[in-house]
């Protein structure tokens, strides 16, 4: 990007490393904004660790240190609790059409615009990433096998697994591999299948459980409000359109990459735990449903989102 020539110089932070598959999708979003605005907006992409830490992305966008961010809401559970509901509570749907309708027709967009808006952020078109699965060292033959297992799972996912009798453990991401290898933990969730592949977790834990912890994850693109206000309306429209294109690309590519990641892990010895029974599925759903009220009580925007969910 030629920084000097543009009217607006944006910095766009994401959580993926330079040169990774997901990193390239964000690069595409940046390029689309540049070309669709005829170069009036220049976007510098900042990858993982480049100036802003993973848990600082939301705060950095609020303060304007970066202009646009693609945060992962679990990292900001204590800052913006509604994000945890937005990303998808355990037991939620994975149907893109249903999610689209929830976000654009049933009113989640209005609530989230307000929730992010209350912290000085503009909430743009969200996008879908693949579901969260749990990987264990021993096969899970029935839900009862979760009893007493130590599983690395932060926040909402930890609570969900606790409802199933497991003991959630807090660990840094970089400690997962050695902790699985040595047996500090019996299992771990990853933010998706691609994450498990990238961490090479299958070398040290072989068994993937069939039921996902969240059907699909919905992630936002956020923009610093004062930078947004500096854009004339036509450019605001351009950025919105670019995020819509981005959401489509995420959906297509992430499906493809997820299946590639699973195939690669299977080649390295990944095995699936046996097919869950109907009773297992019921216990799974029940563990997820128990969280709705808890989250609803914590935050007013979370409550509004969950109320809409309940009306369905």
């Amino acid at each position: 990007a030629d920084v000097s020539a543009a009217e607006h110089n944006w910095r766009f932070g994401n959580l993926y490393g330079r040169g990774t598959a997901f990193g390239e999708i964000y690069e595409d979003l940046a390029k689309n904004i540049e070309t669709m605005s005829d170069g009036r907006i220049a976007v510098q992409v900042l990858y993982s660790g480049e100036g802003v830490g993973t848990s600082g992305l939301l705060g950095a966008t609020k303060s304007g240190l970066i202009t646009m961010g693609a945060p992962f809401q679990s990292m900001h559970a204590g800052e913006l609790p509604a994000g945890i509901v937005e990303i998808g509570l355990p037991g939620g749907t994975d149907d893109p059409d249903e999610l689209y309708s929830l976000f654009h027709e049933k009113g989640w967009d209005k609530v989230l615009e307000k929730a992010y808006g209350s912290q000085g952020l503009v909430w743009l078109e969200p996008y879908i990433q693949p579901p969260v699965y749990v990987l264990t060292k021993e096969p899970i033959n029935s839900v009862a096998d979760f009893e007493g297992l130590k599983i690395r799972a932060p926040g909402a996912y930890g609570k969900f697994l606790r409802n199933l009798g497991a003991s959630p453990v807090s660990l840094a991401w970089s400690e997962i591999y050695t902790s699985l290898a040595t047996g500090v933990i019996d299992g771990s969730i990853g933010s998706n299948m691609i994450d498990h592949r990238d961490g090479n977790h299958v070398e040290v834990a072989k068994y993937m459980y069939k039921l996902p912890l969240a059907g699909a994850q919905v992630l936002p693109i956020v923009v610093n409000r004062s930078a947004w206000k500096k854009l004339p309306e036509d450019l605001q429209k351009v950025v919105r359109e670019a995020t819509v294109i981005h959401a489509k690309e995420q959906l297509e590519k992430s499906r493809q990459w997820e299946s590639e990641a699973v195939a690669e892990m299977e080649a390295k010895g990944l095995q699936w735990s046996p097919e869950p029974s109907e009773a297992d599925k019921a216990a799974w759903a029940e563990a997820g449903a128990g969280l709705w009220d808890e989250y609803s009580a914590q935050d007013k925007y979370s409550k509004q989102l969950i109320d809409i969910l309940k009306q369905q």
Binding site: V52, S55, G56, G59, L65, E175
Partner: peptide, 19 residues
């Protein structure tokens, strides 16, 4: 002065790092 906002995010990332 916008660059000063790098301070709080960096404080959090370094003083709050499990590694």
């Amino acid at each position: 002065d916008g660059i000063f906002n790098v301070i709080p995010t960096t404080v959090e990332a370094t003083f709050f790092s499990f590694i």
